[in-house]
């Protein structure tokens, strides 16, 4: 509990996490609002259209929470004060994941709420399990992506490198893989952010997993990355 408080103080005593959180909410809710104004037939799924962009911003926030510590040397001060590095890093991961998850929920429900407010006539009630998953599920995806971002930050230790990896993989690499004939379509479901998307938007016919299976797969990937990061951090010179 103590270490969670430490990481909470660290995260909220600089400005950039606040900017990232506001940015993520502005992008997602702002987009949903514009969409609602322009379209009378806006759907629940459409209000969540900017989920990936908000997710990117939250992942940047999450990875910077680690890489700035390496950049400014405070990770050494941290390990000096808390020699059990795994505990210190798990506390950071937990705080970051909770904040990321909260931002995800606020972004998702904020987007839906804004659309409802601006287009009261549209069919925007959460009537099916799929609708609920598309909105409330955002928080889970954001939280797990936050864990991945922390892990990548620990492994790479550099802001530019970590941010590049976290933006290029979901936005570029995962889409380009789909262009490979035959093989692409087979690999794609196993790419992390395709799986996360499948959880939120629902799976197609013939998908290798159910929506919840897709989330479980995404969670396993996050856990594996985190495990690798913890092992490396423990062995490495700070």
């Amino acid at each position: 509990m103590n270490l969670l408080a430490v990481e909470r103080i660290k995260l909220f005593s600089t400005r950039s996490p606040w900017f990232c959180m506001i940015g993520a909410l502005g992008l997602t809710v702002g987009f949903a609002s514009i969409l609602a104004i322009k379209s009378e037939h806006v759907s629940v799924g459409a209000t969540q259209g900017m989920y990936l962009l908000g997710l990117m911003v939250v992942m940047v926030m999450s990875t910077l929470a680690v890489t700035t510590e390496y950049r400014f040397g405070t990770i050494r001060t941290t390990f000096q004060a808390v020699p059990r590095r795994t505990g210190a890093l798990l506390a950071k991961t937990t705080v970051v994941a909770l904040v990321a998850g909260l931002v995800g929920e606020v972004a998702a429900f904020g987007s839906l709420g804004a659309a409802k407010l601006l287009q009261p006539g549209a069919a925007l009630s959460l009537s099916t399990a799929a609708d609920w998953r598309a909105v409330a599920g955002s928080g889970l995806v954001y939280a797990l992506a936050g864990v991945m971002a922390v892990a990548v930050g620990v492994l790479v230790r550099q802001s530019a490198g970590a941010v590049a990896i976290l933006l290029v993989v979901p936005l570029l690499v995962e889409n380009l893989v789909g262009l490979i004939p035959d093989l692409g379509a087979k690999i794609q479901p196993w790419l992390p952010f395709q799986a996360a998307g499948a959880f939120l938007r629902g799976t197609h016919e013939g998908a290798p997993y159910s929506p919840w299976g897709a989330l479980a797969y995404f969670a396993v990937l996050a856990a594996v990355l985190l495990g690798a990061a913890l092992v490396v951090a423990k062995k490495r010179d700070a």
């Binding site: 430490v6 005593s13 941290t78």
Partner: peptide, 22 residues
């Protein structure tokens, strides 16, 4: 060990606050 091991955007007091908490 190194006086520059401080986050430049964090106040001196906040720096010591998290450290005390550890």
């Amino acid at each position: 060990l190194d006086a520059r091991w401080v986050h430049p955007n964090r106040s001196a007091r906040d720096h010591l606050r998290w450290l005390a908490r550890t």
